[in-house]
Simulated assay, not measured.
Amino acid sequence: MLFADDGRRRYPVDVAVVEDVAGGTLEALMQTDPARASHQQHSQHYGRVGVLERGGKASGDACEQLVLERAIEDLAEAAGRDPCIGSAAASLQDRLQELATRGAPRTQHGLIHGELGPDHVPVDASGHPVLIDIEGLMFFDVEWEHVFLQLRFGDQYSALSRPGLDPARLDLYLLAMRLSLVAGPLRLLDGDFPHRTVMQKVAEHNAKEALALLVS
Score class of each variant (00 low, 15 high):
residue 81 R to L: 15
residue 50 G to A: 11
residue 160 L to F: 11
residue 79 A to Y: 08
residue 84 C to H: 14
residue 86 G to H: 12
residue 169 R to D: 00
residue 152 R to P: 00
residue 98 E to T: 13
residue 172 L to A: 09
residue 165 L to C: 05
residue 111 L to R: 02
residue 81 R to W: 06
residue 160 L to S: 00
residue 169 R to H: 06
residue 150 Q to A: 13
residue 80 G to M: 11
residue 109 H to L: 05
residue 118 P to V: 10
residue 68 L to Y: 09
residue 47 G to K: 09
residue 152 R to I: 11
residue 60 G to A: 02
residue 71 A to P: 01
residue 55 G to N: 00
residue 132 I to G: 10
residue 161 S to R: 12
residue 140 F to R: 09
residue 171 D to M: 06
residue 91 S to H: 12
residue 177 M to W: 02
residue 67 V to R: 05
residue 167 P to R: 07
residue 48 R to I: 13
residue 160 L to I: 00
residue 113 H to S: 04
residue 127 G to F: 11
residue 96 L to W: 12
residue 121 V to Q: 03
residue 99 L to F: 07
residue 82 D to Q: 08
residue 129 P to H: 01
residue 81 R to C: 06
residue 149 L to Y: 03
residue 152 R to D: 14
residue 147 V to Q: 02
residue 58 A to D: 06
residue 144 W to N: 05
residue 135 E to P: 06
residue 94 D to Y: 04
residue 82 D to P: 08
residue 70 R to Y: 00
residue 174 L to R: 14
residue 170 L to N: 01
residue 65 Q to L: 07
residue 92 L to Y: 02
residue 82 D to L: 10
residue 139 F to Y: 15
residue 102 R to S: 08
residue 105 P to H: 05
residue 132 I to T: 10
residue 87 S to Y: 07
residue 65 Q to W: 04
residue 156 Q to T: 06
residue 142 V to I: 15
residue 116 L to G: 13
residue 171 D to R: 13
residue 67 V to D: 00
residue 95 R to K: 15
residue 96 L to S: 11
residue 144 W to Q: 11
residue 95 R to P: 05
residue 90 A to D: 15
residue 54 R to N: 08
residue 159 A to C: 13
residue 56 G to S: 00
residue 102 R to P: 04
residue 50 G to I: 00
residue 136 G to W: 13
residue 112 I to E: 00
residue 123 V to F: 07
residue 119 D to N: 14
